[in-house]
Write a protein that binds this DNA or RNA. Structure first.
Lengths: 150, 150
DNA sequence: CTGTGTATTGAGACACAGTCTCGATTGCCG
DNA sequence: CGGCAATCGAGACTGTGTCTCAATACACAG
């Protein structure tokens, strides 16, 4: 079963109608290699003559975000991008060259959050961690010395 | 010396001209209690008849961001806000009720980042951690049981 | 203190993101 | 097969951020 079908099934299960535009968008999203913006989907939908309107793209992204099938990423340049992902709490490492992302779980962050709460007196309800860098395959094609350092 | 003066001095030292609009904005920013948006500054500048244009507000924020005197925060709702802060690498805990922020240093995050790099094979160049919750003073005015739990 | 060159300014046009309305369509359930 | 509610596309609308350009004002020299 393709990723697109998984999206469609999840929508169905959540009580959303399975419509043609939603199928089309599920297909587009499943085909994305890295992160994508709403504008990306709009333009791909137009170039592939899928006939999906702009408003529908935004509405669908919103629904998928609600279901945690897609997550918003705030790129360093201020843009909003999205990635398809598993519906569980996690964070992303984003490749700043090709846009591909890798999901990571807690990785010890829980401790950091508790430490911050203790020091500041805040009650921390929500957190977001985003990491940017180069993915293994982009690192490999990098010119210059082969050394890999931070 | 007020926070506004510090901003002005830093601009001067960085080679920017100390102009009237920049002084005015430094004053506005120093007066902010929590985070603020570009639109906030524009509207305050208008209501206080400071005569600072919209373009100048954006340009000044950009300059201050460049000097790390102000940092952009991506609120959970997608808005871009800013906070005045010390020019050193750090993160913020943001109160979702009053908008006040507290700065925190590493707090063990370095270890988390290294762990992620090890697991994913990415070279991590940049990271952003944002925490949202309630500040001590908002917690205190909270209705209901006095217990403080996450 | 005055003149001068240049960085900076405000106004307003522009490009784009995201929301909303509304009449037309279509998926779903009986 | 209906019928109705959810959904749709078009396009108006709001708001954000950028850009251009002529006018201004800062800094510095003299």
């Amino acid at each position: 079963m393709g990723a697109a079908d998984q999206i469609v099934i999840a929508l169905d299960r959540a009580g959303y109608r399975v419509t043609e535009p939603r199928r089309a968008l599920a297909g587009l999203i499943a085909d994305q290699r890295g992160h994508f913006t709403a504008a990306d989907l709009v333009s791909e939908s137009r170039s592939q003559r899928l006939g999906v309107g702009r408003a529908t793209v935004f509405r669908t992204i919103e629904a998928l975000e609600e279901l945690d099938l897609v997550e918003r990423i705030d790129l360093p340049n201020g843009e909003h991008a999205y990635v398809a992902c598993e519906p569980a709490h996690h964070h992303h490492v984003v490749c700043s060259r090709c846009g591909r992302t890798s999901e990571i779980d807690d990785a010890g962050l829980r401790t950091v959050v508790q430490e911050v709460a203790r020091r500041t007196g805040f009650r921390v309800d929500e957190h977001r961690l985003e990491l940017f860098g180069l993915c293994p395959s982009c690192l490999a094609t990098l010119p210059g010395p082969t050394s890999v350092s931070a």
